[in-house]
């Protein structure tokens, strides 16, 4: 489904972040990208979202090179992906409900569908009673659940989560991972970038370990080994 082919990324001549990284992600798979801070996990995800261009190599998503998509069509690529960020990145002046429905609005969904689906995902993430709260009125865990609901509402083909538990306590961390696993079980391909050892070991799914910009380990049902 997703092919990373000899991806290299350097900022200037000195700062080489990724060196010939190649791997594939199958449909419905759950892949954890692990490694220390600066290993290149976030850069890989940013490249997949076409936020950045690689220095060399290509990323094929459904047989299409994502970096050959014209800027005017990039939104179509991104609508196939649900993104969860470490710092939540909720729209500050929209309520939880509006943050989630925003994704459906840009897809042109009608009001009834939006109302129904938003209610459903709020139930899934356990935030039905916080629907009308603004991000500043929510805790970290609640914000991240809103972010997951936003990533999930339009039934994307892939969910990309970049350190989604980075700012959360162990209780909320467990909750978020449980949610991501649940989404994956429903068939959504999931890529999780994390440096949280306990999280990875708890998941028991495929683990790709990045170090110094290269993949040093690719294990089925792997564990975090550094």
């Amino acid at each position: 489904m997703i092919h990373f082919q000899k991806i290299g990324k350097a900022y200037g001549t000195e700062n080489i972040v990724l060196r010939d990284v190649s791997f594939e992600v199958e449909e419905g798979e759950f892949v954890s990208l692990v490694g220390k801070s600066g290993a290149g996990k976030t850069t890989l995800l940013r490249l997949f979202l076409a936020e950045e261009f690689p220095s060399h190599g290509s990323i094929l998503f459904q047989q299409r090179n994502v970096h050959e998509i014209p800027e005017s069509k990039l939104h179509e690529h991104r609508r196939k992906i649900g993104v969860v960020f470490q710092d939540y990145k909720l729209l500050p002046f929209k309520t939880a409900e509006e943050n989630i429905s925003y994704v459906m609005e840009i897809l042109g969904a009608n009001e009834q569908d939006i109302a129904r689906d938003v209610k459903d995902v709020l139930d899934i993430v356990g935030l039905s009673d916080r629907a009308l709260h603004f991000p500043y009125q929510l805790s970290g865990g609640e914000k991240q659940r809103v972010a997951i609901a936003r990533a999930l509402i339009h039934r994307p083909q892939v969910i990309v989560a970049d350190e989604p538990t980075g700012n959360l306590d162990p209780y909320n961390t467990k909750d978020i991972i449980r949610l991501l696993l649940k989404i994956n079980e429903l068939g959504t391909t999931t890529i999780l970038a994390t440096h949280n050892k306990e999280v990875v070991n708890q998941i028991e799914k495929r683990v790709l370990t990045l170090e110094g910009g290269t993949i040093i380990r690719d294990q089925e049902k792997g564990r975090f080994v550094m």
């Binding site: 979202l49 936020e51 005017s72 990039l74 939104h75 179509e76 991104r78 609508r79 992906i81 993104v83 990145k89 909720l90 729209l91 500050p92 925003y102 994704v103 609005e105 840009i106 897809l107 936003r150 990533a151 339009h154």
Partner: peptide, 16 residues
């Protein structure tokens, strides 16, 4: 600008 970045990353077109 961060708000704009988020909108773009969740799939909003430039017009939206």
């Amino acid at each position: 600008k961060e708000e704009i970045e988020v909108m773009k990353l969740v799939g909003a077109s430039n017009e939206f």
